[in-house]
């Protein structure tokens, strides 16, 4: 474990806490893409298949349970919670995310570290996570004005993988046989998707103005 990875995990956790806060405090999920949240449930379930077989550390196991539990809770809330589901902007959340699932799985069948069930699903989860934010980014552009908590949620979500890139650079230089090219390349693509969001987020922060994404 290194400081970059720990910072990345904490930033990821903060993004989830901010989203839960928004939903529970405002009893609203307006501006949040249910499709992105569903993709994250698939990402975590596919990635943490080794939850009960490989014990790495208490921290690792606890964080996996937190990520799986929180992503399921958010999807349950947006689909089932009477007050919250009414605020879901279904007509703005129109990205056909099934293609993202299909494309990531096909790519995982082609590009993986080992052709085993667990490795295929691990690579699938890595590729899917890289594109999982797309429905949310498209929805933000459609909805125009972005409320603060939603903006902060997306910001922390993008920042966490940027910390992981620093972690991979650090491990590359400090560990002899470290090679995580699948996670690294996918992480670069994932962070790149946030580039324009980060730009408009920075502008809104600098001008102390509301976050506006160009339609």
């Amino acid at each position: 474990m290194n400081i970059f990875r720990f910072a990345g995990d904490m930033t990821h956790l903060i993004s989830i806490v901010v989203l839960l806060l928004k939903i529970y405090a405002t009893k609203s999920c307006s501006g949040i893409s249910l499709k992105t949240q569903e993709l994250y449930v698939i990402v975590f379930l596919a990635r943490y298949l080794d939850l009960f077989t490989d014990f790495i550390s208490v921290y690792n196991t606890v964080m996996k349970l937190v990520f799986i539990g929180s992503s399921l809770a958010i999807v349950w809330c947006m689909r089932m919670h009477r007050a919250v589901k009414r605020t879901y902007d279904k007509e703005l959340d129109t990205f056909r995310h099934y293609f993202l699932v299909l494309g990531s799985f096909v790519l995982a069948l082609l590009l993986h570290e080992k052709f085993t069930f667990q490795e295929i699903f691990w690579a699938f989860s890595i590729y899917l996570e890289a594109v999982a934010i797309l429905p949310q980014l498209v929805m933000l552009q459609r909805s125009g004005n972005v409320d603060n908590l939603t903006g902060q949620y997306v910001f922390f979500l993008g920042a966490y993988r940027a910390f992981y890139i620093l972690n991979w650079i650090y491990r590359f230089f400090t560990e002899p046989h470290f090679s995580r090219w699948i996670a690294c390349l996918s992480g670069l693509v994932q962070t790149a998707f946030y580039a324009d969001f980060f730009y408009y987020y920075f502008i809104s922060w600098k001008n102390n103005a509301k976050l506006q994404l160009p339609a």
Binding site: R5, H12, I56, K114
Partner: peptide, 10 residues
């Protein structure tokens, strides 16, 4: 044969 590297990252 690269050892099955356990994914120690989240």
């Amino acid at each position: 044969e690269s050892e099955a590297q356990v994914h120690d990252e989240l």
